[in-house]
């Protein structure tokens, strides 16, 4: 059980790390919002599922974890939507693929 927990949580943490990396390497707010809210959604799910497998989690604690997970799964997209909508209304144009995709990664 504890091994399953470690594996799931490790995958989850890797995904959250990737989403943070995405925040650094992606070009602008819209694509960054994807990285933050997205890989992280799955990362969060995996960390929580991993937590359920830990021996010290009893039924009451599992219930509390579920509550937190539900709130996170609703609050996360809501906050990202608010950010992105504000960016759109402020007139920020979305980044588009340059004519030679892949040629200028370093300039991100």
């Amino acid at each position: 059980m504890i091994v399953v927990s470690y594996v799931l949580m490790s995958f989850g943490l890797v995904l959250i790390a990737i989403s943070t990396l995405g925040l650094l390497v992606l070009p602008e707010i819209y694509t960054r919002a994807h990285a933050v809210a997205k890989s992280e959604t799955l990362g969060l799910l995996l960390v929580f599922i991993g937590l359920y497998f830990r021996p010290e989690i009893d039924l009451a604690a599992a219930g509390r974890l579920t509550l937190i997970l539900i709130i996170a799964l609703i609050a996360n997209p809501t906050a990202v939507h608010a950010l992105v909508r504000a960016a759109r209304r402020a007139g920020i144009e979305p980044w588009k693929v340059p004519h030679k995709p892949g040629a200028e990664e370093e300039s991100w």
Binding site: G22, L26, T31, A35, P94
Partner: peptide
């Protein structure tokens, strides 16, 4: 879709094509 976004962030040569 989470894995796809992660792959685009991680793998060089795979760019997002946002729209």
């Amino acid at each position: 879709s989470a894995l796809q976004v992660a792959a685009i962030v991680l793998l060089p040569g795979r760019d997002p094509e946002p729209g």
